[in-house]
Design a protein around this nucleic acid. Structure first.
Lengths: 338, 338
DNA sequence: CTGTTAGCGCGTTCAG
DNA sequence: CTGAACGCGCTAACAG
């Protein structure tokens, strides 16, 4: 039984090799407490010698800090996320945290999953993007006072979880007002997926701005684009086929705008002469569409870094700001007017 | 000291509530061994009652299976990854594994990081994309016989780690041959980042095909595009400014192709009349560029699922196929000829 | 500055 | 079919 099952060394092996106690090894590992330079050097040599790394499970059990934060999000591959991650890591790395990601995409029945692989006992805190977690999961963390920050989602009623998001409604209003300023009146809206909060506020901004300018809202001019180029392409094609007259499209995100542009061009429409298009987010490819896309810039990276900052406060036991609203800004390119 | 520090319940609490031993709770949790239906029901009720989830650290220590696989990759936000993930999860979920991601992007000095947050003691195996891990880290896993599969990277010399990748050279050859067939002779190449293996083979395919058709290779026609639209845009603009004559561009990936198309159009070139463009990967946006992008389709999703399959074999203790090469295919759209 | 020791929560024997 | 008890590797007291 003294036989080591696998090639993995433990803190005891390191201690033995360095001729110190495990406590001392632990101290140098965690840079906690005082250790004589000479001793520390011996320990570090032993660590390298054995190619030792601490066992994360043991560390969890012993109750130390994990130096780990988790990010839960719905799907990968959106350029949006690249920026978000950058922002999050920027804040986190400075505090010595690593980031692990869990993607809920494809987990059709979330409830078939026994439990989240990232949770209160293997991370120090969680950042949750949009609606990637169920309300009950959020409640669970809340009950346990586990640090969680929501990104682009307001917390369920009764839960005091800090939230970081952007000024969706104002941004949408700017976009639509701009369209109207360009002389457009038949402005269509490509919404995000059902129940999406960003899309909800963007649509509200759209409606209110229309109303403010005395333009009646027409439900025929709203279709679901699901934040997806493909879905939006179909939606716009449908409008064309139905002979619905449109002189502008406000898309709930840049992916939708891309699909819209494509469908319009397929239908022989000129952008922006026949139909103007505005997106939302100002994702990296926005300047590469043809024509380059006018869009509402959301400060994604900043949102990420703010979220991480709030989480850090929580993890320190401090109180965090319950709502951080970041400003959006219209970026005018050529999809809107020459 | 019998006071529970936080609101977290343990297997003992569940056992007490269900009036059984912890061993029995463990059995129902892991569906191992025989448990009477009635007992099992009581235990499950208790679990729900307490909202209990097992402590992952304790589970790691006790040596059980983690039901967890890690994916290490360089950067997020590439549509490429969305597909890859889909493929991986498809194979993994069927076997009851969860997937956790770790992104090395932004960790400028990998060595400042004490150790990988995903490793042999908190996962059952790892999928490593391209060169996101150093050779020494790979060696470490190899020495410990820890299941690892490489995606788009051949293992370092001496390490017998299964690898899944695509037929880069053949794909590139098809692309270049097609360009030549369209009557192009001054074919430029936008390479991937220095040291990238995919790019290396794609460039080789480019050179060999040129040679096979008696077209001399000209180093002035090769520039770094870094798999990035922005970098490629600059590179192509430079070519234009230098007055270098080009009638086709073979881009090492679709991002580069997108940047190239943009730069060409800025310079007043018509695509494909003046300059034809071919990309690589057939990522989701390839059909949305204007004109739609001719590209070499890499079976990304399949690569992901094959990699996961090999990893599963390894985790079962079976031997895996050491090299899986997936075929590529030319997808002709309008960036190449009308 | 350093060593000793007591758990942390769970899976797994081994007895019943 | 069920229970008792050990030990996994580590950190945090507490002593020296």
């Amino acid at each position: 039984m003294t036989q080591r099952t696998n090639g993995r060394f433990t803190i005891e092996d390191v201690a033995a090799l360095a001729k110190v106690s495990t406590a001392t090894v632990s101290r140098v590992l965690n840079k906690k407490g005082q250790v004589a330079d000479k001793t520390m050097a011996r320990v570090q040599t032993a660590i390298v010698e054995l190619d030792y790394i601490p066992h994360s499970g043991a560390r969890q059990m012993a109750g130390g800090r994990q130096n780990l934060v988790g990010l839960i999000f719905p799907g990968i591959g959106d350029p949006f996320l690249a920026e978000l991650l950058l922002g999050i890591e920027q804040s986190l790395v400075a505090e010595g945290y690593e980031l692990l990601l869990y993607c809920t995409q494809g987990h059709s029945s979330k409830d078939r999953r026994a439990f989240l692989p990232l949770n209160e006992n293997n991370t120090d805190g969680l950042i949750v993007f949009a609606h990637s977690l169920s309300e009950s999961e959020l409640q669970r963390f809340d009950r346990r006072d586990f640090p969680v920050v929501l990104l682009h989602q307001t917390p369920p009623a009764g839960l005091n979880i800090p939230c970081v998001t952007v000024e969706n409604k104002k941004g949408a209003a700017k976009a639509v007002a701009h369209l109207i300023g360009c002389g457009r009146r038949r402005i269509a809206f490509l919404s995000g997926p059902e129940g999406n909060e960003d899309s909800y506020w963007r649509e509200l901004g759209y409606r209110e701005t229309l109303a403010a300018h005395g333009i009646p809202f027409r439900s025929a001019l709203v279709k679901d684009g699901s934040f997806s180029a493909a879905v939006s392409e179909t939606a716009v094609t449908q409008w064309m086929q139905d002979g619905i007259e449109i002189d502008a499209i406000f898309a709930a995100d840049d992916n939708s705008a891309q699909g819209a542009i494509f469908a319009l061009q397929q239908a022989g429409k000129k952008i922006p002469q026949d139909v103007a298009v505005i997106g939302f987010d100002d994702v990296s490819f926005a300047r590469y569409t043809m024509p380059p896309l006018t869009t509402v810039r959301a400060p994604i990276m900043e949102a990420g870094s703010k979220a991480a900052e709030q989480l850090i406060k929580l993890m320190r036991g401090e109180t965090a700001v319950s709502l951080t609203l970041l400003p959006t800004e219209l970026v005018i390119r050529r999809s809107c007017q020459e």
